[in-house]
């Protein structure tokens, strides 16, 4: 019996200590900070206030939340738009090809994401490869503004986060029973109604899984907004980063973070309602 306890102790202690010290404690601390005041130079005054929470509902910040959500939603939508047909078309291939293709989707993500973002600068800028090619082919006269705007950010986010959509969507699409689709086809259903009546309902939790894994990082990846957005558009990630590193207002930054956590938990609840499992979120 004693040995049994020792084994239990060894297994559980590290993970419990970890969960408390590196997850619970930091979050409780920023919750605490979000109710503090800041002095002008980055110091924290331990005096209870709700003002940080009022501040984030100021029109200035609400606008940033809306813009950031719009950018993240557009990226999520684009990811869905690519992943669905991609997965459905791959469904016809043999299992071996399918597995290979999914592995190939992952390979680019083993290289540094900043370097890949830099690759997009080379492609998208005014004198970049895409513009030069279009001008040389006489398709356009003047270079298009493909980056240093919201479009650049959306392209960057979609690119960086696409595999997080392709993986859950394709695995859901591959799981659909072929006989179901054939039965519908025999009954005279066209591709559109098969998609609407069978594929969508069968894959909705996979799509929502992917959407969570795309949308949530997309409101926080400040480096993509910096590099491809030209520093013009602030997304929530930049806002939090600025509060911690430039505006020296940690309490406000903490309040925004707490707000984000609440939004995230709300989205996860919806996901669970749709029949999604929490364990599937981390599985790549």
């Amino acid at each position: 019996m004693k040995k049994n306890n020792l084994f239990k102790f060894i297994c559980l202690t590290p993970v419990i200590v970890y969960a408390i010290l590196l997850i619970l404690l930091p979050l409780v601390y920023i919750l605490f900070l979000s109710f503090c005041e800041s002095d002008s130079y980055g110091g924290i005054i331990y005096h209870f206030t709700l003002s940080n929470y009022f501040t984030i509902f100021d029109i200035t910040y609400v606008k940033i939340f809306l813009k950031s959500s719009l950018i993240a939603l557009s990226s999520t939508f684009l990811c869905i738009l690519i992943s669905y047909p991609f997965s459905i078309f791959l469904r016809d291939k043999s299992e071996k090809t399918r597995n290979l293709m999914i592995k190939l989707v992952m390979v680019p993500f083993l290289t540094n994401s900043l370097i890949r973002t830099y690759g997009w600068i080379v492609l998208l800028r005014k004198t970049g490869i895409i513009n030069s090619a279009l001008i040389n082919l006489n398709i356009i006269d003047h270079p298009l503004n493909l980056m240093y705007n919201n479009l650049g950010i959306v392209i960057g986010m979609t690119y960086t986060l696409l595999p997080f959509m392709i993986l859950p969507v394709s695995s859901a699409v591959f799981k659909i029973d072929q006989s179901l689709i054939e039965a519908a086809r025999d009954l005279g259903a066209g591709p559109i109604s098969i998609f609407r009546k069978i594929i969508v309902p069968e894959t909705i939790s996979g799509v929502f899984n992917g959407s969570l894994m795309v949308f949530i990082p997309a409101i926080g990846y400040f480096f993509i907004a910096d590099i491809l957005g030209g520093g013009k558009a602030m997304i929530i990630g930049n806002l939090i980063k600025n509060q911690f590193l430039t505006a020296r207002n940690w309490p406000l930054g903490s309040a925004i973070s707490i707000f984000l956590i609440i939004v995230t938990f709300g989205l996860v609840q919806i996901y669970k309602k749709l029949g999604g499992k929490l364990d599937d979120l981390g599985g790549m």
Binding site: S40, I64, M234
Partner: peptide, 16 residues
């Protein structure tokens, strides 16, 4: 500029 930095910070968020 002391605490007035908060006005600058907000202005900055407004124009971005």
């Amino acid at each position: 500029i002391g605490l007035d930095i908060k006005n600058y910070d907000k202005l900055w968020a407004d124009i971005k």
